[in-house]
Design a protein around this nucleic acid. Structure first.
Lengths: 160, 160
DNA sequence: ATGCATAAGGTCAGTATTCGTCAATATACT
DNA sequence: AGTATATTGACGAATACTGACCTTATGCAT
C-alpha cells in the first residue's frame, strides 16, 4: 500500500529521529537506491517531493569521488526568519490545493495545531466562496487574496 | 428519500464510527465511486458539501500513483443548541469591537486559546479591510460579512 | 601542472495512475 | 415557476517511477 517514495521518506525520517537535536543526515545516493532496489534517480524524486523548503528541509550535495547528499532541517534564528520563509513559500498567489498542503505540512512540523488549521481553512473557504459568489472575482484574483490572507494568518502565529 | 450524497455521507460516517477515537478515514476515489455506481467526481461533491472545515473535518488528498483521499475529523459535530447559542450571541451583523469582546470572553472561559483568537481576529480584519478598500462595501455590509465569518469559525471548533 | 579514468550525483522526458475542476444537466424543495 | 441542491462527464493537472544521458569532482599517471 505504501509507495516506495513513502518508504524511503520514512527511512530518512528515522535517521533524523535516531538522535534528537540532529539537524542533518547525509547519505550516498547509489547505496540507498541499491538498498531499496530502485534506480538512483528515485532518490532525487523523494528529495524533491518530500524534503522541500516547504516542509522545512534543505538539500546539499556533492558529485564526484566522495560524493554525498546532505539533508538539513531548517531552523529559524529569529521570528522574522520564520515570517520571511512563510512569505517565500506562499508567494503572491496560491491555489486551494497548495494552501491545504502547506497547512498539512505546518501541522506535521508542529507549527500549528489541528484546530488552528481548521480555522485557517474555514476562513480561506469563506473568502473564496464570498469572492466568487458575491463579488464575482476572477479565479486568479481569488488566489491572490487567498495568498495574502494565508500569509497574514500564518505570519501572525509566527510571532506569538 | 435518501439521496446518493446522503448515502455516501453515512457510509463514510460509519467508517468513522467503526472505531471510537478514530480520527481519520482514508479511501480511493475510484473504488468508492465504483462501489456506489457513480462517477468519481460525485465523491468530490460529497466531500465539498458534507465534510467541510465548518463541520470540523479536513480533507487531504494526493493525485497520481498511490493517490488517496484522507478525511480527518478534527472536532466532533457540535450540538445544535450550542450552534444556536453562538448564532444568537453573534447575530446577523457585528462590529469589530463586539467581535473582539466576544473573542475575549471565549478566551477567558478557556474555550479558545490566544493563538486561535489571534487567527480569528486577523481574518476578520482582513475581510473588513479588503471589503472596504478593494470592493468598496458599505460598513453595514462589512459587519454582516464579519458576523458570518465569525459564526463559521467559532462554529467549527465545537466549543463545549 | 595536465589529462584522463573513475566515481559520484543531476536532469529530463516518457508512461502509467489517480485526483480535481468546471460547466451542463437533472432533480428536489419551496 | 424559481431557486437550491445533486449528478454527470469531459478535460486538465499532479504524482510516482524508470532509464538514458549529462555534469562535476577526485586522484593518479605522466
Amino acid at each position: 500500500m505504501a509507495s516506495l517514495t513513502e518508504i524511503i521518506e520514512s527511512y530518512i525520517n528515522e535517521l533524523f529521529a535516531e538522535e534528537e537535536e540532529r539537524d542533518y543526515v547525509s547519505l550516498r545516493r547509489k547505496e540507498l537506491a541499491a538498498f531499496f532496489g530502485c534506480v538512483p534517480s528515485q532518490i532525487n524524486y523523494v528529495l524533491r517531493s518530500r524534503f522541500t523548503p516547504e516542509r522545512g528541509y534543505l538539500v546539499e550535495s556533492q558529485r564526484g569521488g566522495h560524493g554525498y547528499i546532505k539533508i538539513l532541517r531548517i531552523c529559524y534564528e529569529m521570528p522574522q526568519d520564520k515570517i520571511n520563509h512563510i512569505e517565500d513559500i506562499i508567494g503572491d498567489s496560491i491555489s486551494e490545493q497548495e494552501a491545504k498542503s502547506i497547512l498539512a505540512a505546518f501541522q506535521e512540523r508542529g507549527l500549528i495545531t489541528s484546530r488552528e488549521r481548521l480555522l485557517v481553512e474555514v476562513s480561506l473557504r469563506f473568502t473564496d466562496e464570498t469572492g466568487a459568489s458575491v463579488f464575482n472575482i476572477s479565479p486568479y484574483k481569488r488566489n491572490v487574496l487567498q495568498a495574502e490572507l494565508l500569509k497574514r494568518m500564518l505570519g501572525s502565529l509566527a510571532l506569538s
